[in-house]
Design a protein around this nucleic acid. Structure first.
Length: 198
DNA sequence: AGCGGGATTTTCT
DNA sequence: GAAAATCCCGCTT
């Protein structure tokens, strides 16, 4: 069977997510998120990530598998969406082998197309640089809610496209946590204007 | 530019 | 009952 005719199975290779979560967090930088919304496609470049693992006290998966963290323990390449602070959604890419509780929080992205839809979801008065420079801002801009928890990122309407990396990466500590503050599992593209906190 | 507080609900102790 | 992988507004330098 020729590869060009095998259209009934996913064509995106996300096997780079199968290894350690720290590695996956690095390699997700520069990758593209595509959200196909009707006639308009939102395209974003991932510029800031954070790794979370079941051996890490800051991770939702640290206390074991629960209804909330179920997706984190599943196969890599799915979306883990959680609700926090009574009003915000945040999105993660699940990593590692099936059975391991690990995921990468997408903290910020750079819009490439679909500015109209992003402004409509976030508010017309929001400056371009503020549209997607934070995990909850990003979800609101895309319209991601709990409904997308468990979504396979190789399938429409939300796709994760691997990409070459031609930039410098900064590694530092994570934002907004009270446990395991010293673990340097936050990564971002150096000098990128859409990173939430330099 | 930087700080402090409030919003608001899920999840676990 | 408290904390939470956050954001926004208003106030002070």
């Amino acid at each position: 069977m020729d590869e060009s005719t095998s259209q009934n199975r996913p064509s995106i290779d996300l096997s780079f997510l199968d290894g350690h979560v720290e590695d996956a967090a690095r390699r997700l930088l520069g990758c593209e998120l595509q959200f196909i919304k009707g006639d308009q496609t939102i395209r974003l470049k991932i510029v800031e990530t954070e790794a979370y693992h079941q051996t890490d006290a800051a991770s939702h998966s640290y206390k074991g598998q629960t209804p909330r963290t179920d997706v984190m323990f599943g196969p890599a390449g799915r979306l883990y969406v959680y609700f926090t602070y009574g009003m915000h959604y945040c999105m993660n890419v699940v990593t590692g082998p099936d059975g391991e509780g690990s995921a990468v929080l997408i903290r910020a992205a750079e819009p490439l197309s679909g500015w109209d839809a992003l402004h409509k979801n976030r508010g017309e008065h929001i400056a371009d640089k503020e549209l997607t420079n934070g995990p909850a801002k990003l979800c609101k801009a895309l319209g991601i809610t709990k409904d997308y928890n468990g979504h396979d990122l190789r399938m429409p309407p939300l796709l994760l496209i691997p990409h070459e990396q031609d930039f410098a990466i900064v590694q530092t500590t994570r934002v907004g946590i009270s446990q395991a503050k010293e673990i340097p599992w936050r990564f971002y593209i150096k000098d990128n204007q859409f990173v939430s906190k330099q």
